[in-house]
Structure formats: structure tokens, C-alpha cells
């Protein structure tokens, strides 16, 4: 089997089989990742470029290490010191990278759909490392990988996603991916941070955290960005934490063996108290490791695709 598209722009566009295929490949990659000598030849001769228009620690590093563990040449473009700062358009930047022989361009952008625009205009495969409020597919893949690793499968699992759903590309990608793999997804957050008609995407929408948590197998907290409070979407972090914070008492509503996940970086004491973050139900650190494995899998699958098609 191969992936249908040359790009990974979002889980919205993937089939359940494709998602499963990526996750299965990631299992093999995790073996390489955990071995003593973290070097495999899969991406030898391939060049991987990261083009990040937004700040990132873990996603960017995760992609760079994934490239290097698989022997690719990896380079990154720092937007602040590039032609982008001189007003170059995304398409022109992309074509320039393309003409230097990039096989994969990994892009993060503050605007939804930017990776789609890039993908249409370059021959290289494009991986979406987060676009605006739209998708963050590799984060969702690593979340699903972590869940499947612990629970065996997503089918029939109850997953609760709590927090700022409106602005969350992580939530959107997880909603698309997890519902495709048969999970029952519930979301809860302040009503000003729930996008309209979300229920039509096949998830249950609650405005109390308790309802969403009942019998959950997986609880995912989302990062609350402090700027959102400044723009008046909720009154204060204190009030957020009071009604939506995932404390131990509330988490008792979930199943006893429920996994606690968070895409990071965490605001300790806001989304989750430190006691939960550091408890043995929390798999936040495993998520990071699995992120590298999933990205290794994707890079491998996209570069070995028979690139019979070309654009222009």
C-alpha cells in the first residue's frame, strides 16, 4: 500500500486505512528510535526542509531528529532571517526550495490552508506541521499512536478533548482521525471557544467538563493560549481553571485507567495541575517520543511513494 497523496495536509483527507498504515509503520520506526544506534538508511539521499512561520520547539526538533535518524539531509529555514522577511510570497519561497531539490517540505504557518497552497505549487511532498486553526495532523497521529499503544485500538474508546477547541488545530485533526478509527469523541470547553456546528462533524459537544469526562478512556487537555483571554473570549485563567481545569476530582469521572494526554506545552495549574501532569496516568512524555516515531514513518512513506505524478 502507498499513501494516495504526495502530501500530508490533514487527517480530514486520509482514509482510515491510510491512517492505520502510517501508525503501523511508526511501530517499526519506534524500534529504530529506541535502539542504541539510532541510524537507519531509509532516507539516504533525501533532503528534508523545515519551513516554520511560527515558533515551535518540539514539532520542529521532532521532525529534524526524525530526518536525521533516517539519514536524510535536513535543513531548516528561519523565517525571520529569510526572504520572507523581505516580503516574499509563500509560493515563491516554496518554489525556490523546490528548485534546490527538496524532497519534503515541512511547513508550519499561522494561516489555515497555507500548506495546501504550498503543496499545489511545488513538486516536493508537503507535510503540514500545523496551519492556523485547521490541522496539525502529525500531532494527532502521535496522539492516536500513543492511545493504540496503551489500549490496543481506538475502536469504541471514549475520548474527551477539553479546552479551547475553537482555535485548536490539534483538536480538529484528532476529531477527524479518531472518529475515522472508530473512537467516540466528546469535547468540552467554554462556549466561546467551541466553533459553530461542531456537532455535525460527528463529535459530542458539552459545555461542562464533567459530562465529557464520564467514562472516558482518554482525556486530552488542550493548551489555553493566554492571548485568547486578552481578546475577551473568556474572563480569566482563574475562571477557566475553575470550570474546565482537569483536577483529580473531576478526573475520577473518567475510567480508572484513563490516559491523560496533552499536546504541550502545558500551562501547569491551568489546564492540568502538576499532580496530574506528573502522575503515572499521564503519558505526556511518551507522546513526545512517539512524535518522533510517527514523523519518521511519514517521512519514509512519503519519500518512497512512486512519484510518477508531477505538477505544472
Amino acid at each position: 500500500m502507498t499513501l494516495k497523496s504526495k502530501d500530508l495536509l490533514g487527517l480530514k483527507d486520509l482514509t482510515a486505512e491510510e491512517i492505520q498504515y502510517i501508525l503501523n509503520t511508526a511501530k517499526t520506526m519506534k524500534v529504530i528510535l529506541l535502539s542504541k544506534n539510532k541510524k537507519a538508511p531509509h532516507l539516504q539521499g533525501k533532503s528534508i526542509i523545515t519551513l516554520f512561520y511560527e515558533n515551535s520547539t518540539r514539532t520542529r526538533l521532532s521532525f529534524e531528529l526524525a530526518s536525521k535518524y533516517l539519514s536524510a539531509s535536513a535543513a531548516n529555514i528561519s523565517v525571520a532571517s529569510s526572504s520572507v522577511a523581505k516580503g516574499e510570497t509563500l509560493i515563491d519561497t516554496g518554489k525556490t526550495i523546490d528548485m534546490m531539490g527538496a524532497d519534503v517540505i515541512i511547513i508550519r504557518h499561522s494561516m489555515s490552508g497555507a500548506p495546501h497552497l504550498l503543496a499545489k505549487n511545488v513538486n516536493a511532498s508537503v507535510i503540514n506541521a500545523g496551519d492556523g486553526m485547521n490541522e496539525h495532523p502529525t500531532q494527532a497521529l502521535l496522539d492516536m499512536f500513543t492511545i493504540i499503544e496503551k489500549k490496543g485500538s481506538l475502536k469504541g474508546l471514549k475520548v474527551a478533548i477539553i479546552g479551547d477547541i475553537y482555535h485548536s488545530r490539534v483538536a480538529r485533526s484528532n476529531i477527524w482521525g479518531m472518529t475515522k478509527l472508530g473512537a467516540e469523541v466528546s469535547v468540552a470547553g467554554p462556549s466561546t471557544l467551541i466553533p459553530p456546528e461542531l456537532d455535525k462533524t460527528g463529535v459530542k459537544v458539552f459545555t461542562t467538563v464533567q459530562e465529557a469526562l464520564i467514562d472516558a478512556d482518554v482525556v486530552m487537555g488542550l493548551r489555553i493560549q493566554k492571548e485568547r483571554q486578552k481578546s475577551g473570549l473568556f474572563p480569566s485563567l482563574r475562571e477557566y481553571s475553575r470550570f474546565f481545569g482537569l483536577d483529580e476530582k473531576r478526573l475520577k469521572l473518567a475510567k480508572e485507567d484513563a490516559l491523560i494526554l496533552h499536546p504541550g506545552p502545558v500551562n501547569r495549574g491551568v489546564e492540568l495541575p502538576s499532580s496530574v501532569i506528573d502522575s503515572d496516568r499521564s503519558f505526556i512524555n511518551e507522546q513526545v517520543t512517539n512524535g518522533v516515531a510517527v514523523r519518521m514513518a511519514l517521512l519514509y512513506l512519503l519519500t518512497r511513494r512512486d512519484s510518477g505524478e508531477s505538477i505544472n
Partner: peptide, 13 residues
């Protein structure tokens, strides 16, 4: 427009 499609695409409505 703010609605289902803005939610699906993650665009501000």
C-alpha cells in the same frame, strides 16, 4: 461565513 464550513477548515468566521 461563520458556520459548519468555517469550523471544518479552521477559518475565522
Amino acid at each position: 461565513n461563520e458556520g459548519y464550513w468555517s469550523t471544518v477548515m479552521g477559518l475565522k468566521g
